[in-house]
Design a protein around this nucleic acid. Structure first.
Lengths: 336, 336
DNA sequence: CTGTTAGCGCGTTCAA
DNA sequence: TTGAACGCGCTAACAG
C-alpha cells in the first residue's frame, strides 16, 4: 500500500489537507491554479486516496456484490461480464460470491454483507433456498438489492429475468411442429420460480396441442450419474418420448450421453431442445437446438438498475421488473 | 447498512467499546462471562463490525483481487471457483476485474489497486500486455502479487502455471503417434510466455521426429472471421496439414467450423488436438481430443500461496514456482 | 480483567 | 479561496 496520504501531499504543497482533498475532488471553491498544482503532484506521486478511510467517512463503499450459484456456467459468466462492464464504467468494484447452490452458504454470505461492505447486492438465488428470511432481512435493512434470473417472486425488489414461460412454451411448440407426439420435460428439482415457469410453458404448450404429459415429467438433481439413470429409465420405458425439452443445459448434456450409450439416434428417434448459453452446442453431434438467454444484457441491466437504486434515482416501472426475450437457435437436434 | 455500532452495543451492555471489541474477537484477556454476554447481544442484534473502520484501523482489507482477461472461458471460471473456495474458507472477500485482453485496462486496474483496497492480487496477464512497468510497480510497492497461468517470467513473483512446454510436446507427439506427417500449429499472436512455451513444445516434438514446420505455423488473433480465413487458407493451400495442434480452445473451434464448411473429415483427413477445459468437447462431432489443465487446482494453489505471502509466512521453494501437470483426454478427433 | 485515550485517513463542517 | 477542527467506527497502547 502506498504510504503517501493527503497529509503528506498537503505538506509538500504547503497547503492544508482539506484543500488538497477538495482540489482532488474538483470542488468549485478552489482556484484553478491550486487544483492544477495539486492534481499534478498527485499524479506524479501516484496518489490514491485510501478507500477505507473514504468509505468510512462517506458511508459508501463504491463496491457491489454479485451472489451466484456457480461461475462454471456460461450463463452466469456472461452475466458477470455484463455486470463488470457496467461497474467498471461507473468506477465501481465488484465482489463475487459463489453459493454452490447451498442455502446455508447463501445465508452466510448475505449475513456478512449486511454491514456496509457493499452499496448493493445482485443475487441469483440457489436452488436449495427454502426460506426467504435472509433476503427479506437484507431488503428491510435498506441495502439495495436486485434479483436476476432466479428471482424470488414474493419479495418486492427489482428483478431482471427472461420470458421463461413464453420461451419454454415456444421451445415445446417447436418440438410439436417438428412432429413430436410425446414430449418429455427434464427439469431440476427445487422451488425455484424459474423452474415452475419453464414447466408451465411446457405444460401450456402440451395442453394447447392436447398432448399427454403422464410419466413424461422427470425431476433431476445435481448428480450426473443419477440423472443419467433417470433419463435411461425414461427412454427405455414402455412408452418412451420422441422429444425432450431440457430446462437446463446440464440435462441436455446428460441426455446426449445417455443417447450415445443406448444408441438412440438424435433427431430421428428423439428430438432435443434445451435452454443453454453455450455457443459450442453448434459443434455437438448433432448440433443442439437451444433457447438462448441474453445473459450479458441481463447482467448489464441488473447492474444498471442496482446503480440507479444506489443513487436513489426513481425507477420507471419497466426497470422494476424487466423481462428480456430469449430466442431459439434451431439446429439439427430438432431437425427433420 | 446496520446503524448499530460498537459504541451502542457497549452502552447497552454497560461496557466500554474496547471491551466489546475484544470480546467479539475472542481476546484471551476477557472473562468468559463477558464474552458470552457480548456475543449473545451482538448475535441478537445482528451486529457486524463496520469493515471500513476495521480495515482503516488495521491496514488490512481481508480482500484480494483477481485480475483476469475474461470470464467466459471455462479455464478462467474454474480458476475463479478455486480461488473463491479458498478465500471463503479464510474469511476473505474476492474482487474480480476483467481486462478483456486490453493492456490499458490492465494498467488502470492495477493502478487503482495500489492503495490498500486489497491485501493481495492474483493476475493472469492480458495478451496485449507489452510492458511490465505496471506489474513491477505493484511488486515494488510491497503489495503481495501472484501470477497464474499467464505469467511474466522476468518478474520475481510467485507463479502458478502448468507444464505447457511438456504438454504441448506430448500433444504434438500424440498426433505423430496417430500417424500425422504434417502437423500445423495454431496459436494466438502476442508476447505471452505461455504462447512461446506451447510453441516450443510443438517445435521440440517436430524436431524430434524430423518433421517439417515451414508454412505450418499460423498466428491467429481475436477475430473469429479472420481466424477462419487463415485456417481455410492453410487447409486449402498446396501442401495442407494432416494434423492440427491448437494452442487454445477457440482456435480448435474455428477449425471445426472451417472443416464443416469445407467438408474436411475429422479425423480421417485431419486430426485435431487442443488445449481446452471444456468438458462438453466430448459431445463434439467428432469428440475433440483435449489437453486439460487443472484449472480449479491452479486457482486454489494461487490463492493459497497469496494468503501465505499476505500472512508473511515463508514460502517453500516449490510454492514460489508451482507447476501443475496437464493431461490429455484422448477422443475421436485424433482417432484412427 | 476492563476502561481511557488516541489515531488510522479522509471529507465535511465552521470559521476566517 | 483556504485552514482548523472534528468525527466516521474501530482497535491498539497504555493505564489501572
Amino acid at each position: 500500500m502506498s504510504t503517501i496520504n493527503l497529509k503528506r501531499l498537503a505538506e509538500e504543497l504547503n497547503l492544508s489537507a482539506s484543500t488538497v482533498s477538495r482540489a482532488l475532488r474538483g470542488s468549485h471553491e478552489i482556484s484553478q491554479e491550486t487544483k492544477d498544482r495539486v492534481k499534478a503532484l498527485a499524479e506524479k506521486l501516484g496518489f490514491q486516496p485510501n478507500p477505507h478511510a473514504s468509505s468510512l467517512r462517506q458511508s459508501k463503499s463504491n463496491t457491489i456484490a454479485v451472489v451466484l450459484p456457480e461461475i462454471e456456467n456460461n450463463f452466469f459468466s456472461q452475466v458477470m461480464n455484463g455486470v463488470e462492464d457496467v461497474a467498471q464504467k461507473k468506477g465501481y468494484h465488484v465482489l463475487i460470491y459463489l453459493t454452490h447452490e447451498a442455502f446455508a452458504r447463501e445465508k452466510d454470505i448475505l449475513q456478512v454483507l449486511r454491514n456496509g461492505r457493499v452499496d448493493g447486492i445482485m443475487i441469483s438465488v440457489s436452488n436449495t433456498t427454502t426460506s426467504e428470511e435472509h433476503l427479506q432481512e437484507v431488503n428491510r435493512s435498506g441495502l439495495p438489492l436486485v434479483f436476476f434470473d432466479r428471482i424470488v417472486e414474493s419479495i418486492d425488489v427489482p428483478r431482471v429475468s427472461t420470458d421463461d414461460t413464453d420461451a419454454a412454451f415456444k421451445g415445446t411448440e417447436h418440438l410439436v411442429e417438428k412432429g413430436c407426439k410425446r414430449i418429455a420435460l427434464l427439469s431440476m428439482s427445487g422451488l425455484l420460480s424459474i423452474s415452475s415457469r419453464r414447466r408451465n410453458g411446457y405444460l401450456n404448450a402440451l395442453k394447447k396441442y392436447g398432448m399427454e404429459t403422464d410419466g413424461l415429467q422427470v425431476e433431476c438433481g445435481t448428480d450426473d450419474e443419477t440423472n443419467r439413470r433417470l433419463i435411461t429409465a425414461l427412454l427405455q420405458g414402455p412408452n418412451p418420448p420422441d422429444g425432450i425439452f431440457a430446462a437446463v443445459e446440464k440435462l441436455a448434456i446428460n441426455t446426449y450421453e445417455v443417447c450415445r450409450q443406448l444408441g438412440v439416434k438424435i433427431p430421428s428417434q428423439l428430438k432435443i431442445i434445451s435452454f443453454s448459453n453455450l455457443s459450442v452446442t453448434a459443434l455437438f453431434d448433432p448440433p443442439l437446438t437451444t433457447i438462448v438467454q441474453p445473459a450479458y444484457e441481463i447482467g448489464k441491466e441488473a447492474a444498471a438498475v442496482l446503480f440507479k437504486i444506489i443513487q436513489k434515482k426513481t425507477l420507471v416501472p419497466g426497470e422494476k421488473k424487466s423481462v428480456f426475450p430469449s430466442h431459439i437457435v434451431e439446429r439439427a437436434s430438432t431437425g427433420g
